Computed example of a mutant assay.
Amino acid sequence: MTAVSERPVVSARRLSEVVGAYVALTKPKLVELLLVTTLPAMMMAADGWPSWRLVGATMVGGMFAAGAANTFNCWYDRDIDRLMSRTRDRPIPSGAVSARAALVFGLVLAAASLTLLWVATTPLATALAAVAILAYSVVYTMVLKRRSRHNTVFGAFPGAAPVLIGWAAVTGSLSWPALAFFAVVFCWQMPHFWALASRYREDYARAGVPMLSVVAGPASVGRQSVAWAWATLGATLLMGSITPVLGWAFAIGGGLLGAWYVAESHQWLGRIQSALPDRPMRLFSVSITHMTLLSIAIAIDVLV
């Protein structure tokens, strides 16, 4: 009787583990960060709150698109993921999901994403999502990641694509404010990911991935991060000046957040040059808070 009564519990636990493994393939934390920029872009485009139906379709479609791209990344990088302490427990290296099942899952997510966006949003938003999936899965993951020190810069294009997808879902077109917001998110990604890559530089070196932190000295990484942080601030101020629906609240808030990002990047460089513990994850954490608060500032400014 005990074995029989425990069987449903064991089955439920196994189902939960399988579902969790497939969700992990999509890198949900990264997906969440990407979607943080989608909604404020939609709100700016609509000069207010878009319809709930459009918001839901765009957010779910974007989630599926990002999840598909990340799943393809996990599928292709399964060999080097086994070599890195940060990634060896991912579903494919750990054996929780087979490579073939992961590939099929990615294809299903991509098809679901593009179908939903096509039916519920606009052709341009659908096309941009398709380009983003291909750019991250093929151009970044399969072509550049293992061959070029500039892989992060090219990978930043699909990383900033949710801004354009959200805008296009509302208007069916693009405009200068959308491109300015795209520039903010694009520039922001370099210090963000280089800080993370610096924390795990030994992992990337072991896997033979030429991240900037592997092929360049720490001071060079720090200086380039400072330059891109300044570019983020500049793009933020430009965005505030050319976007009619944004006012002084965003100009002040965005300026302060950008200045904080710049200051933290300078502090990171200072620690590197002083031969102190560089603590790159501090900049990484600040970058996430910066983008989250910036998106909230946009939403508040549009609504108020």
Rank of each mutant, 00 (worst) to 15 (best):
residue 102 A to T: 05
residue 100 R to Y: 05
residue 103 L to F: 11
residue 94 S to I: 00
residue 97 V to G: 04
residue 110 A to Y: 02
residue 71 T to Y: 04
residue 102 A to C: 03
residue 83 L to F: 07
residue 82 R to N: 15
residue 85 S to Y: 14
residue 82 R to K: 15
residue 106 G to R: 08
residue 98 S to E: 02
residue 88 R to K: 14
residue 85 S to C: 12
residue 101 A to S: 07
residue 109 L to M: 01
residue 82 R to I: 12
residue 91 P to H: 08
residue 76 Y to N: 13
residue 82 R to A: 15
residue 81 D to L: 07
residue 90 R to V: 07
residue 96 A to W: 06
residue 94 S to M: 08
residue 109 L to S: 07
residue 96 A to C: 08
residue 84 M to V: 08
residue 87 T to R: 06
residue 89 D to P: 15
residue 107 L to Y: 11
residue 81 D to H: 05
residue 80 I to D: 05
residue 99 A to F: 05
residue 86 R to D: 13
residue 81 D to G: 10
residue 73 N to C: 01
residue 100 R to P: 09
residue 98 S to F: 07
residue 106 G to M: 09
residue 72 F to W: 10
residue 85 S to K: 14
residue 85 S to I: 15
residue 101 A to H: 09
residue 79 D to W: 14
residue 91 P to M: 05
residue 79 D to Q: 15
residue 73 N to D: 13
residue 102 A to R: 03
residue 106 G to L: 06
residue 106 G to V: 08
residue 77 D to Q: 13
residue 88 R to W: 13
residue 98 S to C: 00
residue 110 A to L: 06
residue 85 S to W: 12
residue 80 I to C: 06
residue 102 A to D: 05
residue 90 R to C: 11
residue 74 C to Y: 09
residue 81 D to A: 08
residue 99 A to D: 00
residue 72 F to A: 11
residue 73 N to L: 02
residue 94 S to W: 03
residue 103 L to N: 00
residue 96 A to G: 13
residue 108 V to C: 07
residue 71 T to N: 10
residue 77 D to V: 01
residue 101 A to R: 09
residue 104 V to E: 11
residue 105 F to M: 02
residue 108 V to K: 00
residue 79 D to Y: 14
residue 98 S to A: 01
residue 83 L to M: 13
residue 103 L to I: 06
residue 87 T to I: 11
residue 91 P to I: 02
residue 94 S to Y: 05
residue 84 M to E: 04
residue 100 R to Q: 12
residue 99 A to R: 00
residue 105 F to N: 03
residue 92 I to A: 08
residue 87 T to K: 11
residue 90 R to F: 09
residue 87 T to A: 08
residue 105 F to S: 02
residue 93 P to T: 07
residue 72 F to R: 13
residue 106 G to A: 07
residue 109 L to A: 03
residue 93 P to K: 03
residue 80 I to L: 12
residue 109 L to N: 04
residue 106 G to E: 07
residue 75 W to Q: 14
residue 78 R to M: 06
residue 110 A to D: 06
residue 107 L to S: 08
residue 90 R to L: 10
residue 99 A to Y: 00
residue 102 A to P: 04
residue 91 P to G: 09
residue 77 D to S: 10
residue 78 R to Y: 12
residue 84 M to F: 02
residue 76 Y to F: 11
residue 104 V to Q: 10
residue 82 R to Y: 11
residue 72 F to K: 11
residue 103 L to H: 01
residue 101 A to K: 09
residue 106 G to P: 07
residue 77 D to K: 03
residue 78 R to P: 04
residue 97 V to F: 09
residue 72 F to H: 02
residue 80 I to K: 08
residue 103 L to M: 08
residue 81 D to C: 11
residue 97 V to C: 06
residue 93 P to I: 03
residue 87 T to H: 10
residue 98 S to H: 03
residue 73 N to T: 11
